[in-house]
Computed example of a mutant assay.
Amino acid sequence: MKIYHLSHTDLDGYGAQYITKHYFKDVRYFNSNYGREIDEKFNQILSLLDDEEAMILITDLNLSKEQCLDFEQKIKDKNAKLFLLDHHQTGAECASEFAWYFLDSSRSATKITYDFFSKMLGEDAKLKLFSDVVNAVDIWLKDDNYFEMGKVCLGLIANAKDINKVMFEEQNSDYMFYLLSQAQKFFNDKNDYIGLDMHIHAIKKDFFKKDKDDTLSNLISAYVVDLLSKNRQKYEISYKEFRGILTYNIGNTSVIGNDFLVANDDYDFFIDITSKKTMSFRANGKVDVSAMAKHLVGGGGHANASGGLFNAFKDGFEYESIKSQVVELIDKKTKE
């Protein structure tokens, strides 16, 4: 059975997925905040369903009654089952009406997920301890022995913004799982939360490091450029006779943009658009991006580094919907 696991974007959300990763092999992971993103992620999962039997597992996200009814209807003719494990009391009404909606406000979603699957598939001492650590901080048990460790883990995940989950969802999940697996090494008899706090920088570097050591910023840039280079056709756009690439909320645009263009000298420009509607344009001497920025969004700057504001841009949670807006903008402006 294929499992599609949708969960929240915090420690408890990724923690619940870390549990399913232990017990199941054929799982694809999705993460969402509340609101419209849940619907978009659910629709994304629906688009991937085929005739194979599947389960859509939702954890650490409470749904509205309208969403429950909508999701039930959408899988009615699919070979898929819906199951939700959550602890937010605001889901009480839904839990009372829908058999697939399990709610227990006394435990974190990670602990609920561990308790549920361990009863069926066998207990694991390390994983139980992991669920207890997450539980201590997520439901704020200040007197619990694992509370301080949980706080460090909470910050570890909250500050792990190094891989953009919209563009690189699978790699982002791998990164989160790696961080959690390394954190577990400090869940020892000393309950060494101070040691974990001291080693976070090194743990992150170890994930991104390949052949040689470097600063964390440079290692992340090299990792992201490698991902972009390997999948460049997916991110490719064009402007007049020039060939470029479009990213979303990539961060550190100057470094990553320049590094990508150096590594891929058959590309002429690099654009990054953000959730705040800003656009950053980068080039490496092949096209004047100040003229491009002015033409497309009334922006400007320098020949190799410019910016502007795409006022009509509507933020999204899936790369293709973001790319289509920029492609449409370029098509419209170049045909005027």
Score class of each variant (00 low, 15 high):
M1G: 05
M1C: 05
K2I: 12
G13E: 00
Y14F: 14
A16K: 03
F24Y: 05
K25T: 10
R36P: 07
E37R: 06
F42Y: 04
D51H: 04
E53P: 06
L57V: 04
E66Y: 09
Q67N: 07
Q67V: 04
F71H: 08
E72H: 00
K76H: 07
K76Q: 10
N79I: 00
K81S: 15
L85D: 02
H87E: 11
T90P: 10
A92Q: 15
E93D: 15
A95C: 10
S96R: 14
F98L: 10
W100Y: 11
Y101F: 15
Y101I: 07
L103G: 08
L103S: 13
T113Q: 04
D115S: 11
F117N: 03
K119W: 13
D132C: 08
V133L: 12
D138N: 08
K142P: 10
F147D: 09
F147M: 10
E148P: 00
K151Q: 15
V152D: 11
V152N: 08
I157A: 09
I157G: 00
K161D: 15
N164L: 05
V166S: 04
S173T: 15
M176L: 03
L180V: 04
L180Y: 03
Q182D: 02
F187L: 03
K190Q: 11
K190V: 11
D197T: 09
I200F: 04
K205Y: 07
D206E: 13
D206T: 05
D206F: 01
K210M: 14
K212Q: 14
S217E: 14
V224H: 03
L228F: 07
L228C: 05
S229V: 11
S229C: 04
R232A: 08
Q233W: 12
Y235I: 10
F242I: 11
L246T: 04
T247S: 01
T247L: 05
A263E: 08
A263R: 00
D265P: 06
D266G: 02
D272P: 01
R282D: 04
S290Y: 07
S290N: 04
A291D: 15
H295F: 13
G298S: 01
G299M: 06
G299I: 03
G300Y: 14
H302I: 01
S306K: 02
G308M: 07
F310T: 05
G316P: 01
G316N: 12
E318C: 08
E318F: 13
S321R: 08
S324K: 05
E328K: 11
E328V: 00
E336N: 07
